[in-house]
């Protein structure tokens, strides 16, 4: 206790830190900047959503097109996220458990979608499936619509959320090495048993972390989906697109009501993500980096 007090008093005059007033000045500037840039927009969403009262808020959410948008967003995430989870597990298994040529290049490639503008992520599918392409008319002759329909929205969402799970799992599994798996195999487990009973329990928190980030982006993606959706009201508008349509129709209160649901999703994501970082920090690889 006494040493602790002395240590604290000592730190105050430490030559490797700043004086208390300077510290408080810097903390003040940093927090003020964060408050204006980050917290104010968050507050504005909920403020504007409730500006016409709680009744109007729920009326806006209960509206038919809003309901359809919510359902579509959930459906798209329910398809895109599991596919990217399977990919993430396969990629991290191949990359972390084996040594092969071109591995570093493959890791770079997996991150590629993060450096592509969302609008371009949508555009590539328009070029692949749109009018004037080879695939689009061919699929259409079999009655399959990709653009301006669910498959296109799912594809664009997969593109932009592609790296999330893999880039969380790869460093984590590389850190864990192959010792546990080799032990399981030498004790007679087969490959699937090893994966389900040894590897998966080892990476479950990291996997959950990746899924959380992947899902938040999948439900909130705007640019890529805007390009491929065609914005058919009640059919191909996801929640973010519905927000845009309402906003452009000067129905700001309804737009913010729907937006507040997405903001709530963001807050829940942040809380869960932070809880995972605090509780299982050493079982999550890229906690501070993505």
């Amino acid at each position: 206790m006494a040493t602790k007090l002395r240590a604290r008093r000592h730190r105050r005059v430490s030559p490797t830190s700043e004086s208390r007033p300077v510290q408080w000045l810097l903390i003040g500037i940093a927090l003020a900047f964060m408050a204006v840039i980050l917290l104010l927009p968050l507050y504005a969403v909920f403020h504007e959503a409730l500006i016409k009262g709680i009744g109007a808020f729920f009326a806006a959410l209960g509206e038919k097109d809003a309901q359809a948008a919510i359902r579509l967003t959930l459906l798209v995430a329910a398809i895109a996220v599991p596919l990217n989870v399977v990919f993430g597990l396969a990629a991290s298994w191949a990359i972390a458990k084996f040594e092969f040529k071109g591995k570093a290049f493959l890791i770079t490639l997996i991150d590629l979608p993060f450096s592509v503008s969302p609008v371009i992520s949508g555009l590539v599918y328009v070029l692949l499936f749109g009018a004037g392409s080879f695939l689009g008319p061919w699929l259409k002759s079999y009655g399959i619509e990709v653009l301006f329909a669910l498959p296109g929205i799912v594809l664009a969402t997969i593109f932009v959320t592609f790296p999330f799970v893999a880039r969380e799992l790869i460093p984590l599994m590389q850190d864990q090495g192959t010792g546990d798996e080799e032990a399981a195999l030498s004790l007679g487990a087969n490959g699937w048993q090893t994966f389900w009973r040894v590897t998966l329990p080892n990476i479950k928190w990291g996997l959950l972390y990746g899924v959380l980030l992947c899902n938040a982006r999948a439900m909130g993606e705007f640019g890529a989906v805007a390009v491929v959706s065609g914005k058919i009201r009640g059919q191909t508008t996801t929640m973010p697109l519905q927000v845009e349509m309402l906003y452009n129709e000067y129905n700001a209160a309804a737009a913010f009501a729907l937006a507040s649901l997405l903001a709530l999703l963001a807050l829940v994501t942040l809380v869960l993500k932070t809880a995972l970082e605090w509780r299982f920090g050493d079982e999550i690889a890229a906690a501070a980096k993505h």
Binding site: L38, L42, G220, A266, K273, H290
Partner: peptide, 14 residues
């Protein structure tokens, strides 16, 4: 990390 989690359209109108 809020800007990573908040959908861009929501940030835009806010």
């Amino acid at each position: 990390d809020l800007p990573f989690a908040l959908p861009t359209a929501v940030a835009g109108i806010a």
